[in-house]
Simulated assay, not measured.
Amino acid sequence: MSFSMQNFYDSFKSALLYAPVTIKLTAITFIVSLIFGAVIATIRNYRIPVLSQFFAFFVTVYLGLPTMVALLIYNLLFMTLYADVANAFHISVPISDVNPIIIGYFTLIIGTTCSISESIRGAFRGIEKVQYEAGYSIGMGRFKTLTRIIFPQMIPILLPGMQNSLIGLLKASNLVSAISVVEIMTGALLPSLLYYSYLEGYVAAALVYWIIGAAIEILAHFAEKRCGKYLKIATES
Rank of each mutant, 00 (worst) to 15 (best):
L175Y: 12
N164P: 02
S92D: 06
F151G: 12
E133F: 06
L170I: 04
L158K: 07
S177C: 09
A188R: 13
F89P: 02
E183H: 09
I102P: 06
G141P: 11
S173T: 09
I150P: 13
V182W: 15
R125L: 13
S192M: 13
G122R: 03
Y136A: 12
G135C: 05
L199S: 12
I155L: 12
F151L: 14
I116F: 01
A88M: 10
M140E: 00
E118D: 12
L193F: 15
P100C: 05
V98L: 14
M140K: 06
R148Q: 13
F89W: 09
I155Q: 10
L108D: 05
F124V: 01
I149E: 05
V181S: 08
I155N: 03
F143M: 14
Q131E: 02
L146K: 08
T113V: 02
Y132S: 03
G135F: 01
I101S: 10
S96Y: 08
I101G: 03
Y132K: 00
F89A: 09
K171C: 03
I95C: 01
G126V: 08
P152M: 05
N164W: 00
V130S: 11
Y198H: 11
T147L: 10
R125M: 04
E118C: 00
E183A: 12
Q163W: 06
Y105S: 05
R121I: 06
K144P: 01
S192V: 12
I95Y: 04
M162W: 12
L166W: 01
T112W: 02
P100I: 09
V130Q: 07
I167R: 01
E118I: 04
L146W: 13
N99Q: 14
G187R: 14
S96F: 02
R125A: 07
P94W: 01
D97H: 08
I110W: 10
G139L: 01
P94V: 04
I116R: 02
E183K: 05
G161C: 01
I91M: 09
I149C: 01
L158C: 04
A172K: 09
A188Y: 13
L158D: 08
N99G: 11
G187A: 07
A86Q: 01
E183S: 11
I127Y: 07
A172T: 12
T186G: 13
